[in-house]
């Protein structure tokens, strides 16, 4: 119940800020980026942080969602077309996840990292060469349906869905693979099945993120979804903490803010960004949240720790 109120408030406050123009168009783009990155990071966290499978192909799944949704809405430019586009994009990404995951996830070790990297490059090259996707120039004038309300709905659904899943027996099966794959198998967990499931759910959500991206920024091209984009998402997950959903959310917000702020220093922007990342990883190698979740008790505990530290001085 508390959760619902907090969610409702977040939505309402930001909606009011947008309606009263207190959030400029520029800041709105940052807000959209944050929401999309939250979806991407939380879903990659399911694969990498919770199930322990190192994937470098998230941008590939994202691009499938983006292109499928763009192509559908450009033909059916209605809100139904948009909704169908989002789900068709997500489904296409999930199917791709299944096709790539099934053969590679049978193997132990880091084969998935290489296979997923290869997959996302192949997808990029396909989009680069297809006529329907307009090659390197990409798709322009994609109908814009995404607004704060849609973003909020999809983001909340993804985050709540995945954090609920993690707390179910199916989610625990995924976590047991990360903890000890051999022991998990010996305890009756079908590790291949659950690795594929985590991968497919992750791909599905990345597809949603891509669809939202296409529909908000109304312009996509293959270069937007290259290897660097996958690394960007991985950075958010690692920075927030492997296996912490609130960590992914915090890191997505923090990085977007740092990057927005640094826009005023274009020459040294990337240097400062990298320096900030290195600094955070030196001081919090386990990520901002480790594998813990932000909760009211956790905040209380932090408060107590600070107090006792003051007491000592």
């Amino acid at each position: 119940m508390k959760k619902l109120i907090a969610l409702g408030l977040t939505y309402a406050v930001i909606q009011i800020l947008i309606m009263t123009n207190l959030i400029s168009d520029y800041l709105q783009a940052t807000l959209v980026t944050i929401c999309i990155n939250i979806i991407l990071a939380v879903s990659l966290n399911l694969i990498t942080g919770f199930t322990g499978q190192f994937s470098l192909g998230h941008a590939g799944f994202m691009s499938i969602g983006a292109y499928v949704c763009a192509l559908i809405t450009m033909r059916t430019s209605t809100i139904y077309g948009f909704i169908i586009g989002v789900f068709a994009g997500a489904l296409a990404a999930a199917i791709m996840g299944f096709l790539v995951g099934l053969p590679t996830l049978r193997l132990r070790g880091d084969y998935l990292a290489i296979a997923s990297l290869g997959m996302s490059e192949i997808i990029r090259i396909i989009f680069l060469n297809l006529e329907i996707t307009n090659g390197a120039a990409g798709l322009n004038n994609i109908p814009q349906f995404v607004n704060w309300t849609w973003l909020f709905i999809f983001m909340t659904a993804t985050v709540l869905g995945i954090s609920n899943f993690i707390k179910s027996s199916h989610g625990r099966a995924c976590i047991s693979i990360r903890e000890d794959e051999i022991a998990a198998e010996a305890m009756g967990i079908d590790t291949i099945k659950y690795k594929v499931i985590a991968f497919v759910i992750g791909a599905f959500c990345a597809g949603i993120a891509g669809a939202l991206y296409a529909s908000y920024f109304y312009f996509i091209k293959p270069d937007l979804f290259g290897f660097l984009k996958s690394v960007d998402i991985l950075v958010i997950v690692v920075l927030g903490g492997m296996g912490s959903i609130s960590g992914s959310i915090l890191a997505a917000i923090l990085l977007a803010l740092i990057s927005t702020y640094l826009q005023s220093f274009p020459e040294i922007r990337m240097v400062l960004y990298a320096a900030a990342l290195i600094a955070i990883m030196i001081f919090r190698p386990q990520g901002l949240m480790g594998s813990r979740e932000l909760s009211l008790e956790f905040i209380g505990e932090l408060g107590n720790r600070l107090k006792s530290r003051k007491g000592r001085v």
Binding site: G161, S169, H170, R172, M187, G188, I189, I197
Partner: peptide, 18 residues
């Protein structure tokens, strides 16, 4: 709990929606 997994009868939808 993990070792009890095979006794679980609920599917994916109930676990997403609790």
């Amino acid at each position: 709990l993990i070792a009890m997994h095979k006794n679980v009868k609920y599917g994916f939808v109930p676990s997403f929606l609790h």
